[in-house]
């Protein structure tokens, strides 16, 4: 289960890194790729992290969320996951929400680094919640089948 989720996450991450790491030059493919990620991210060029001449297809905050999830995913392959408290999830969300609020209201200017870091912590915790819920779901199903 964990490996499968991690596999899908890796595919998703490779997808938004593709313009920077590969030289596929097909306009239709590029258009599709941009469209897919545009449904889940605003893709403002100033907020996207650049790799060489091209930039990622998601903003620094979203990239942070996905990379946070990836780090958590790799960690869960070694360590066991206990049920994550709702408070921990909310605590992880607070820095991200504050950063969004402060940049939106103009208290400070947008920083890719800060957006990435706040996304990283939230993504990591979010992935743990998802994995623990998935495992709960499947362990219950297995229990019912065994019964």
């Amino acid at each position: 289960m964990r490996i499968l989720l991690l596999f899908f996450l890796c595919i998703w991450i490779v997808g938004f890194l593709l313009p920077g790491i590969s030289s596929i030059n097909n306009s239709l493919f590029d258009f599709l790729l941009v469209k897919i990620y545009s449904t889940v991210c605003h893709q403002e060029s100033a907020k996207c992290i650049s790799i060489g001449n091209s930039s990622m297809l998601v903003c620094a905050r979203c990239a942070g969320i996905y990379f946070g999830a990836l780090i958590s995913g790799l960690t869960t392959l070694i360590f066991s996951v206990h049920s994550i408290s709702r408070r921990v999830l909310i605590l992880a969300l607070i820095p991200l929400a504050i950063d969004v609020l402060f940049t939106f209201t103009g208290i400070y200017t947008y920083s890719q680094r800060l957006a990435f870091i706040t996304g990283l912590s939230f993504g990591g915790i979010l992935y743990l919640v998802i994995i623990s819920e998935f495992e709960n779901l499947f362990s219950k199903k297995l229990f019912i089948i065994n019964e």
């Binding site: 897919i36 990620y37 449904t39 889940v40 999830l89 979010l126 998802i130 819920e133 998935f134």
Partner: peptide, 16 residues
């Protein structure tokens, strides 16, 4: 994309 994110939202929402 919406389906994937919606299902993940559903999972997290149920947990919360």
């Amino acid at each position: 994309t919406y389906s994937i994110f919606g299902m993940l939202g559903g999972l997290i929402g149920t947990a919360i």
